[in-house]
């Protein structure tokens, strides 16, 4: 994968591996993952492959820039491009980390109940972080208050104490692949459930829960 990326964002070259991606495609992938992650209430599957490729790409671009002589106008365009990509990448990783911190017991619980072979939500680094965060927070609460409480109250079930992501919140989305027969749950008692078709390119406002599977398989894009 490593060499499949050209170095300055222009069009691209070859590699022997199967999943060759142009830098433009890669950045589009990153942006897609970024927007989905930013707008979905729950943590999505990790895209560590994309993250790694983008990091590599950035390093390439940086080192290319080193060679450019001072005062070259082209250099500053590239510099700007690097800054933009780095912002998107950081923002993506940040919003994931925020969700991990916010929902850490639930994230870890899901990781635990994951069946072998199923892709993990967390990248190995994120998993390590989540575990440390859990232990750290638990130890802290124990040391400061819980162990000084009466015997039957010395534990707190963090899974119950920390709120779960609200999957019923509404999200804006754009349809990338036509979907038929999406079942929309009723919102009030006098409403009945109904079925909608999502046309390609159309935009909707729906409950996240309804479209969650479509977000994870890439059929719709959160906006």
């Amino acid at each position: 994968m490593s060499d499949a990326l050209s170095d300055d964002g222009s069009d691209i070259n070859q590699d022997d591996s199967q999943d060759v991606m142009t830098p433009a495609e890669l950045i589009a992938k990153l942006e897609e993952a970024w927007l989905n992650e930013k707008f979905s209430p729950e943590l999505l599957e990790n895209k560590s492959e994309v993250v790694e490729c983008v990091m590599e790409q950035l390093t390439h671009m940086e080192s290319n820039l080193q060679r450019v002589k001072k005062g070259d106008a082209k250099a500053s365009f590239h510099r700007m491009e690097i800054d933009r990509i780095r912002f998107v990448l950081s923002s993506y990783l940040r919003s994931r980390l925020q969700k991990i911190e916010k929902f850490f017991p639930h994230v870890l619980e899901r990781e635990k109940s994951r069946v072998e072979g199923q892709p993990s939500l967390l990248s190995p680094e994120e998993f390590a972080f989540a575990k440390e965060y859990y232990t750290n927070t638990e130890t802290y609460l124990k040391a400061v208050a819980l162990k000084r409480m009466p015997l039957n109250l010395q534990t707190v079930d963090l899974l119950k104490a920390v709120p779960e992501p609200c999957l019923d919140s509404f999200v804006f989305l754009r349809v990338k692949e036509k979907q038929e027969n999406i079942l929309v749950e009723p919102e009030t008692d006098d409403q009945r459930e109904y079925i909608v078709d999502l046309e390609e390119g159309s935009q909707h406002l729906m409950r996240y829960r309804t479209v969650a599977p479509l977000v994870s398989n890439g059929a719709v894009q959160l906006i």
Binding site: V51, E52, S90, L93
Partner: peptide, 14 residues
């Protein structure tokens, strides 16, 4: 350590 481990040990300050 999370930020250091990003991108195969290159690190990124997010």
């Amino acid at each position: 350590s999370f930020m250091r481990s990003l991108g195969e040990g290159e690190g990124l300050d997010i």
